[in-house]
Design a binder for these strands. Structure first.
Lengths: 335, 335
DNA sequence: GTTAGCACTGTGCCCGCCCGAGTGCCAGGA
DNA sequence: TCCTGGCACTCGGGCGGGCACAGTGCTAAC
């Protein structure tokens, strides 16, 4: 597929279909784009494009719409990522600079991206690679229950309640706390579970069961990092996209609520030279997303941010927005 | 309105309409319910109910559907809250008992409620009334930025980055940390901002700006409690409800994403003697929710949990599920 | 107060019709 | 070899008429 005019026609079809949301015919094409040839010629090229499986006609006598493969070709070969406007860039920066804590950053980011792209935005919590333990706090809740708080250097505090066989004296609690701190502060999160197992094993009997329970709790906090969580916004945008054409909203919403599935999908996507990954239609495994497209990219060490929308989306703008937001996010979190 | 048979007929209309999702006529009514009278009599009663504004006919020759007021009467006068089944109760308990931390409790609760009711579920984070400060941690991020972590007795850890005019020495940081701890540990969250203002004012010049910045950050954390946050699940259920009848999905999704609005709505709702609050259609202010119903109740000190769905919902079951989930939630968090 | 019967009415559905958009193909020209 | 104008063809969508049906309101009788 290296016939320049045909690529140009494919591009025009994709753009017009995204814009007008209806099949585009040869005449409309020559009217709206300076192709320099007649509609008959365009028809011949369209037949060739259809032969190659890049476009298709919903019914015999109507215009053409791009296929999955057509969008893919468009994205790979044609689309130049469109830079964001100055005001947009400033808006991103201002909004994210004001964020109070990590949760706030995530919340603002996902809303911003949803608004910029007019799609559903998804942001994974930052990955904890290279993060070490800053502090651990053990809080007595009474009745043999203690709250364990893990404060890693990335600020993503985690917490959990551990249940002990018997209540602890204040002095015992302090000793336990000191032992835990000594064992893990400064260590990488990945090393925490083992370190605590050693600590528990080396603790004298009266405190041993409590040390084991607390150690297990902290270990779980360190292991089950926040990178398994995500935030989402802009689901209302789906309603608009879905309104006029296929892509029923229910299954897509279900898929989006399955965080595990979404996170795996995002993590599988590998970005290309432009720094963005795109999955179109059936490139997503068979299922509810087979009529949708996902545009994603990484930020920070190995976390992901992206949007989900109809295949008929403005890829250049969307890719630009996703990439820009990811960059600001890296900057905010890395700084 | 104290005509027993007419109430019975209203009840039958609501139940059948909820069940079959189409206007119900006099004949179908006598077929499906043992009313003991003929369809002609039912027609007379239906005319009376329509006169009172409790039901209405979409067009001249079709069955009747309940109005907002009809649902209201149904909910107030008729519906007995239907207790949950044993397996349902056990499922709630098992699921919530396994939760790791507060975020996990919220996440599990909201999913559970969405699944039980087949509606969109909303859970507000627990309110911090009566909560005191257990600990504060100050973590140096370098470059004059410090992470401030507030650990309240309810386990809802909050965090924030404070930006200082100039970097601090380690010893200065330790001193600052000690001053903050001395000022706020053991105090109620509501007293924290003032206490820190005093602390900052009484700090010697070299450390004063940093104390002010950190104090302000901690104060904001204490003031801006988690009760302003909420989690949501089951939006896919909206697609099903919305599919066949009015209640367009877009505006409702938009309203749900406006957390501020939703939280205010929930907080305004006052539960009745049965411990549940219900808002139907236009009882919600004009707007996107005027064709929806909200069923909510409180849990813990003053937080809310509820569901949003079409007016045509199974109120007895929904009210029971909301109430049951709220009870388990109170128990988990209060224990 | 209840019931049977009857005339009436609006909706949904099916059918046939026509119109227009857009195609594929062919023959002629650069 | 590629492009173009022309033409016949095809299908979808909109429109109007006719039909069956569900359900009502009303009246007269019990």
């Amino acid at each position: 597929m290296n016939h320049p005019r045909r690529l140009q026609i494919l591009q025009a079809i994709v753009e017009d279909y995204v814009h007008f949301r209806e099949p585009v015919g040869s005449k409309a094409l020559v009217d709206r784009h300076r192709l320099g040839v007649s509609s008959a010629t365009v028809r011949n090229d369209m037949a060739a494009l259809e032969e190659e499986g890049l476009i298709t006609a919903p019914h015999t006598s109507s215009g053409r719409i791009p296929t999955d493969k057509g969008y893919r070709t468009f994205v790979d070969q044609i689309a130049a990522v469109k830079p964001l406007s100055g005001p947009e860039r400033r808006a991103i920066q201002r909004l994210l600079d004001d964020a109070a804590d990590i949760d706030d950053v995530m919340e603002r980011t996902v809303r911003l991206l949803a608004q910029l792209t007019q799609q559903v935005a998804v942001v994974q919590y930052p990955h904890a690679s290279g993060v070490t333990v800053r502090h651990v706090e053990v809080v007595d809740l009474g009745a043999g229950r203690v709250l364990v708080v893990l404060i890693p250097t990335n600020g993503r505090v985690a917490q959990r309640v551990a249940v002990l066989r018997a209540p602890l004296e204040d002095s015992q609690l302090l000793e336990l706390r000191a032992r835990v701190l000594a064992a893990v502060v400064g260590r990488s999160l990945t090393a925490v579970p083992d370190a605590l197992a050693v600590m528990a094993a080396g603790t004298a009997p009266p405190l041993q069961p409590a040390a084991a329970a607390v150690g297990e709790a902290v270990g779980a906090l360190a292991a089950g990092g926040a990178e398994h969580r995500m935030v989402m916004a802009g689901t209302a945008n789906l309603a608009r996209s879905t309104g006029d054409f296929h892509l029923s909203i229910g299954p897509v919403l279900e898929a989006l609520e399955e965080q595990v599935v979404m996170l795996r999908l995002l993590s599988e996507m590998e970005q290309d030279a432009r720094g963005v990954a795109v999955r179109i239609g059936t490139e997503n495994a068979e299922g509810p997303l087979s009529e949708a497209a996902v545009v994603a990219t990484g930020y920070g060490p190995q976390s992901k941010v992206g949007v989900v929308g109809p295949m008929r989306m403005d890829y250049p703008s969307t890719m630009a927005a996703v990439r820009a937001v990811a960059r600001y996010l890296s900057r905010i979190l890395g700084g």
